[in-house]
Nucleic acid binder design. Sequence first.
DNA 1: GAATATACATACATTGATGCATGATTAAAC
DNA 2: GTTTAATCATGCATCAATGTATGTATATTC
Lengths: 209, 209
Amino acid sequence: MVRRTKEDAMETRAKLLDAAEALFSENGVTQTSMMQVAEKAGVTRGAIYHHFENKMNLIESLMGRVKLPIDEMREQIAEGCEFDPLVEIKERSKEFISRVQNDSQVRSLASILLHKCEYIDEVNPIKLRHVSGRNECICDIEKLFQSAVEKGDLSSTLNARIAVIGLFSLVDGLIYNWLLAPEYFPLVEYGNQAIDSYINGLTREGSLF
Amino acid sequence: MVRRTKEDAMETRAKLLDAAEALFSENGVTQTSMMQVAEKAGVTRGAIYHHFENKMNLIESLMGRVKLPIDEMREQIAEGCEFDPLVEIKERSKEFISRVQNDSQVRSLASILLHKCEYIDEVNPIKLRHVSGRNECICDIEKLFQSAVEKGDLSSTLNARIAVIGLFSLVDGLIYNWLLAPEYFPLVEYGNQAIDSYINGLTREGSLF
DNA sequence: GAATATACATACATTGATGCATGATTAAAC
DNA sequence: GTTTAATCATGCATCAATGTATGTATATTC
């Protein structure tokens, strides 16, 4: 079992990433050893260190191979919205949580991000990607809120920045709590209603000032 | 430096807890060794293992000595609210985030809970306390929502359970994101407005059904 | 004040994880 | 077809952390 073909190599690489993803999301990043990852992938630790520099690089590759909902959200917004901006915001937010509930890979990564790793220093690639992606997306949606204000759908006294941060926090919190105990409530059903309530609250005259 | 008095012992115990709290909330639970905790407290590891069984027990004691906002929330609610239940809900929620922002010890523990530990198995006392405290509080506030419905402040079509979970998610999300980058937005100011929006959205006719 | 328990320090034994160095075998390049 | 290089296994050296056992000096108890 040596010097397999190039496709074989990519397959073992993928198996390693799959194994790491499953183990990390289940047992936590630091609680998972390279040995366990190798075993689950059906190879030895040597294979890991051939494909990845170290654990950090393994995680980096793990996160890099999947398009996270927040990235997809940005793309869809960038594609142009001729719609009502408020409707756009609602739809994007609902799709966001829908992907978390229905895409098992996204769910695993979200679980790692929110519950199975420690956010330490700034160098941490996990934290880095999470925060930077979030901040950029916040700016995008802030613009949508502003155009809703200009369009007259929201009061001109509304602070768009506050509105976005509230929305993001709501979505994050929903996912956070759902992942903590998925059997406790249905994410999409409850989440959609909570998002509607929040957006509705924004449209109320004088709700924010 | 041996066989200090009983008060001295309690002081070193407190120093150990303080050191652990600071280190855990800054560098993460698994990234902090007993050695570091002992050094920061000005003692040796022997002192730790005299006062605590192991790291898990140290964390347990850490969490146990502080009354978390969620516990205080429940107490205040239990004390009886002759007010408007909706106002009560808003006020408690706002006090919740206010404590996180202003009480440095609470802030540290919240940081550990949300960002600096891995939520692994059910045995984990951190997760246990977090989840059970949350679930009980959710029930308390659900009742408040129901009395708001009975009082006529909320539509009878409103699902109280969904309303609570949305509120909790919003609050959790606000704290989660604020702790991730506190300089990014002022927690209390933005949080209060987001909470108002959400509750306002609930009071809107037909917002939830 | 003798006996005992307490509050730590010190030292050690063990574990397990990491990273690297090396080896074996074959695919790929020429 | 030879050479080269890639893919992974194996073995080793190292290190850090844990837990525990033991030592020691003093507070506490009687």
